[in-house]
Design a protein around this nucleic acid. Structure first.
Lengths: 167, 167
DNA sequence: GTGGCACCTGCGAATGGGTCGCAGGAGTCT
DNA sequence: AGACTCCTGCGACCCATTCGCAGGTGCCAC
């Protein structure tokens, strides 16, 4: 990880278009990079690296987790991929264009709600007005209680093994 | 970690008072638990477990990191301690009463700004109004750009090895 | 003040997520 | 087709944290 210069998100809507971007950036188009992109496009939301290495349930076998991480980093550097951290648990990766969203995560039921950045502008505005701080909830989401769990008793407030369903 | 039932924060202002709470909870007051508390009270802000095991620069030598983790968990369960995650990097621990704060972390210069929960009520209010979501920024802070770094170019957006100074 | 028993400690090994170095393999350009 | 890199797979490694176990110790009762 540690993406030195995460480029601005590049908009592509399929693997072929992503491959074009890769070529235009001087990156080689290898089989494993195609698989990484294929899995990311096929996934319903952000997925952990290990799931990418599994090749979407064995349909696209990929051998090496280390290479997956390197490819994710490379693809993130050119802006095709992004990653985020939902609480604890492994980092999650997604196609940048398809996932330029910000997240609200319920610490109780682990539900994940994706919202478009503009929906959070009012919140961001308050933070800027009150603290001169410009928040971004893409990489580290907002954690708290969703409406359903507002009054639920505390349970445990650590580990994020379960990746809540997306709303 | 994985605190099963993090009790409500217990308010104590020194090690002696914390020891009282421990006794009242049926916990044994061991030397190493005293050291953990002493270090936490002496620290200027949240500190990683390893720094606790170091015993505040060797002044209070503690042998075993594993025991430190176990004690932190135990003390957190009774509400004397809490922990949080500032970006990447190890978890940070603090005396619950002294640190019932919420945090804003700059992803660029890693500065950490502690604010009292009430100062974020307006922000929380917007989130509740707009999404029915009750946010808490104590365990996972708000990440973004502080005023100084608002217009700085992107640099890297991962790893939090440096624990920014507190504001 | 001395047992005794459960709890706590220290140690070491293990786990999970992620990175790195290296040697060989495969895109790409000509 | 050749050559030059980059990319891959493998294994070792790192860090933060957890776990199992055997032995030590705080605390309560007598």
């Amino acid at each position: 990880m540690t993406v030195a210069y995460p480029g601005p998100a590049v908009v592509v809507e399929d693997v072929a278009a992503a491959v074009e971007v890769m070529r235009s950036q001087g990156l080689r188009v290898s089989a494993s990079r195609r698989v990484v992109l294929t899995v990311l496009f096929a996934a319903p939301g952000p997925v952990p690296a290990e799931q990418i290495a599994d090749g979407l349930g064995g349909r696209f076998p990929l051998s090496d987790l280390g290479s997956v991480y390197r490819n994710l980093e490379t693809l993130e550097r050119v802006g095709l991929v992004r990653h985020l951290h939902l609480g604890h648990g492994p980092g999650l990766y997604a196609v940048a264009e398809r996932d330029n969203q910000e997240y609200l995560v319920c610490e109780h039921c682990h539900a994940v709600r994706a919202v478009s950045p503009t929906d959070l502008d009012a919140v961001r505005g308050r933070l800027r007005d009150d603290f001169g701080f410009t928040a971004s909830f893409g990489h580290f989401p907002i954690v708290g209680r969703c409406a359903d769990c507002r009054d639920a008793p505390p349970r445990d407030h650590d580990h994020g093994h379960e990746h809540g369903r997306h709303a």
